[in-house]
């Protein structure tokens, strides 16, 4: 295999990896503030793409408005999921809440099928034009959008967590709900904001990638699994680990397609997931024990 070809696979890996990273971040921040895995995370990705297409075709919005509108609608859905499906059962064991998220995932998927139909659809690229050639490899313009939007999302998240009072409250809530309430943090609201944020990350991924791969009402489960594998790879720890997990998973998939066979590309995520769970449950970057006071 030539260098250009290898570069082409690497670019594809980093493109998918950025998407996985956004989904993994969604899993990670919700896990941090609630201790539960939100298996509806993939549906946020689905809604991002589907709502954007619907806004573009049915409402006739310009692409520039349809994309942020789709993210905003999904943010609303994320907040509602927390408020209506999870908060009433907040006192239950985590497993109960996790099963609720699986139910929410099914519900959102069938609602999407009714509202948007069963067909595969696609968004036009955000900027038209031919691919860019880079050392003999082709980079689609939309791939640059995927990377750019991922970078912006990470920057916004970083500023939010390290520079704002809300971010400090979110980090405090991740440490302990009781301690947070003691200093006056409305933890129920923080959890709702976290769901909204996770929805935004999922929708952003879905809408950024919709011009590259077609989307449909049922794409959530597959991407949810990939994002979950990436999050586990990152040890469900900090945001940096989640992003690294996403990129590692994307590259692993892409390079295995290059060197082994593309037939097994989707199975790679499962193999990685199982390997991490069996061999290093704390994730690639995890420490053995957890800090405690």
């Amino acid at each position: 295999m030539g260098a250009a070809q290898l570069l082409q696979f690497t670019i594809a890996g980093l493109k998918n990896g950025a998407i996985y990273a956004l989904i993994a971040l969604g899993f990670t921040i919700v896990y941090a503030s609630t201790g539960i895995l939100n298996f509806a995370q993939g549906e946020f990705y689905m809604l991002g793409g589907m709502v954007a297409v619907w806004a573009l075709r049915t409402l006739g919005l310009p692409l520039l408005a349809a994309v942020p509108a789709a993210v905003l609608v999904t943010v609303g859905v994320g907040a509602l999921v927390e408020r209506l499906a999870l908060r009433p059962r907040r006192a239950e064991a985590p497993l109960v809440l996790i099963i609720i998220t699986i139910g929410v995932s099914m519900l959102l998927q069938s609602l999407a099928r009714h509202l948007f139909g069963p067909n595969e659809v696609a968004l036009p690229p955000f900027t038209a034009g031919p691919s860019i050639t880079f050392f003999g490899a082709a980079i689609e313009r939309q791939t640059l959008w995927v990377w750019g939007l991922t970078a912006v999302a990470l920057l916004v998240l970083w500023v939010l967590y390290t520079r704002t009072k809300l971010g400090l409250a979110m980090r405090a809530t991740a440490v302990s709900h009781d301690s947070s309430r003691l200093v006056g943090i409305d933890t129920a609201r923080v959890v709702m904001v976290t769901f909204a944020l996770a929805a935004a990350l999922g929708a952003l991924a879905g809408v950024a990638v919709a011009p590259l791969t077609q989307t449909a009402y049922d794409v959530g489960a597959r991407i949810g699994l990939k994002g979950f594998a990436a999050a586990i790879l990152g040890g469900l720890g900090g945001p940096v680990a989640a992003v690294a997990g996403g990129l590692v998973l994307g590259l692993t998939e892409s390079l295995s397609a290059a060197f082994i066979s593309s037939t097994y590309k989707d199975a790679i995520a499962l193999v990685v997931l199982l390997a991490v769970i069996f061999l290093k449950p704390s994730g690639l970057f995890g420490r053995a024990g957890r800090e405690k006071v």
């Binding site: 405090a172 003691l182 200093v183 006056g184 006071v293």
Partner: peptide, 25 residues
């Protein structure tokens, strides 16, 4: 303000962040 048994500090956060959180309300 309650100083609870076992202190219930924010262990992974810094001393300054803990104090700033004290003023959160």
């Amino acid at each position: 303000a309650l100083v609870p048994e076992g202190r219930m500090l924010f262990g992974p956060l810094t001393v300054e962040e803990n104090l700033r959180l004290g003023a959160f309300a």
